[in-house]
Amino acid sequence: MKTLIQKFFNNEVLSYLFFGVLATVVYLVFRTLFFYLTQDAVISTATANILAILFAFITNELFVFKQKSPGRWERLVKFFMARLSTFLLDIGLSFIFVTQFPEIIGQFVNHNLQAVNAIVALTSQVLIIVLNYLISKLFVFTNKQG
């Protein structure tokens, strides 16, 4: 069993997906919590994104791409800059489909704003996971451990 787990986490794509799912859980928990507390989709999305990005950087740095210590701050800056585009995509989708035009999705969920927010959050996360892997693999984590 231990060997199987090691093989799983030595596979970069599987490891990325595992930690990506955990980062998504962090994101969804905080987005849902902050939306419940504030009823503001943009604030809840922004706060959840910041927390999920920090979580994702740490797990990608240490466990997925197994980076050498030198250059960590440079990678952190690159990581945040790379994630800015997907962050803006998420904010934009939240603004458009939850704040401005909730009826587009709302018509399918009895105009329940919580459900609209959840659908937009899940959909955007699927897009973001794929885009973030490509960005991280090609531009950020290029300093593999020996």
Results as ranks from 00 to 15, higher is better:
F57A: 07
L51C: 13
Q114C: 07
Q67Y: 04
S94C: 08
V42S: 08
N11Q: 03
K66H: 09
S44C: 13
L22S: 10
A118L: 12
D90Y: 08
V77F: 09
V13K: 07
I105K: 02
G92Y: 08
A118I: 12
F80N: 14
Q125D: 00
S85G: 11
F97R: 02
G106L: 12
G71I: 05
T99Q: 08
F95E: 04
G106T: 13
T45S: 12
Q125G: 00
S124A: 13
F35P: 06
P70Y: 11
Q107R: 14
A48Y: 05
T24V: 03
R75G: 02
Q125Y: 01
A82L: 11
Q107M: 14
S94R: 02
V21M: 06
K66E: 07
L76A: 15
V25M: 05
F34P: 02
Q100S: 12
K78M: 01
S44P: 13
D90W: 00
L17T: 05
I58F: 11
F34W: 06
N49V: 10
F34D: 01
A48S: 13
T59W: 07
T47N: 06
D90S: 15
S44I: 13
L62C: 06
I119L: 11
L76T: 14
L93V: 12
E61R: 08
P102H: 03
F19I: 02
R31L: 07
A115D: 01
W73E: 02
N117E: 04
Q107K: 15
F57D: 02
L54P: 01
A52Y: 02
G20V: 05
K78C: 03
L76W: 12
Q39C: 10
F18V: 07
N112E: 06
L33T: 13
Q67I: 06
F101P: 01
A41M: 05
L33S: 10
